[in-house]
């Protein structure tokens, strides 16, 4: 179980790195600097509003979700060990 998750996590990271490397760096930097903001949509607008503070909120949500998943898995493992004895 643990191995499977580590492997899938590693694969996901590889995917991220390869897409990042494949991107046109110059245009990405330009976009980050806000020079060419052509993105539209409600989600984009929301995350860019109020000086992008909701990006920080999203980061907290991600961190908290990961901690929760970790705790749930730990809880299940301990329950399993308790049943064994």
């Amino acid at each position: 179980m643990v191995n499977r998750i580590s492997v899938s996590f590693f694969a996901l990271m590889l995917l991220f790195v390869s897409t990042a490397l494949g991107q046109d760096t110059a245009s990405a930097v330009q976009q980050a600097a806000g020079q060419q903001n052509t993105e539209t949509g409600a989600v984009n607008e929301f995350f860019r509003s109020n000086s992008k503070i909701y990006v920080a909120m999203g980061i907290l949500v991600i961190i908290f979700s990961c901690i929760t998943i970790y705790l749930v898995r730990l809880d299940r493992k301990i329950t399993k060990l308790e049943k064994e004895k």
């Binding site: 920080a56 909120m57 907290l60 949500v61 908290f64 929760t68 749930v72």
Partner: peptide, 18 residues
């Protein structure tokens, strides 16, 4: 109560910024 805690905290993180 564990589920309640997680739901409350998600509400707090999102509500806390909004």
């Amino acid at each position: 109560w564990k589920i309640l805690s997680v739901l409350l905290l998600l509400y707090v993180i999102i509500g806390g910024f909004m």
